[in-house]
Amino acid sequence: MNSLLLTVTARVLLPGFLIFSLFLLLRGHDLPGGGFAGGLVGSAAFALFGIANGVEKLREVFNIDTIWLIGLGLFLAILSGTFSLFLGDPYLLAIWYELPFFEYTIKLSTPLIFDIGVYFVVIGVVMTIFFSLQEDN
């Protein structure tokens, strides 16, 4: 597509979209958001960039094998449940660990790893669909 407006806008918005998608991912457990919504926003960012600048430029920016990303996400999601197996609890029991960081506490948890896995799966799936549709044309 040869629109200057779209090209410049996509280039400016791409980092903003990605930061917003990470924000959605990290706030997902207690507030609206989560891995699925974050993944969709992130892949919308790349899709906008791809439509504005063409698939070749998108491949330069996003050169990860998308199917590998799906596998990684699925692997992380399953792995997040197995931590509780070692403690003798049922599968997928949420394990929380509060890490003191100066005066704040960072809460690390297995649902976060699960959400990150979902995030990767969603980005991988949407980008696979996008790339295969573009290459079909």
Partner: peptide, 24 residues
């Protein structure tokens, strides 16, 4: 009785690892 989840997570894990090795 975590044995019950094994029939579900073992094939799922195998699917995920197969996707990780998509090229081979």
């Amino acid at each position: 009785m975590n044995l019950l989840v094994l029939p579900i997570i073992i094939p799922l894990l195998a699917a995920a690892v197969c996707l990780l090795f998509w090229k081979t």
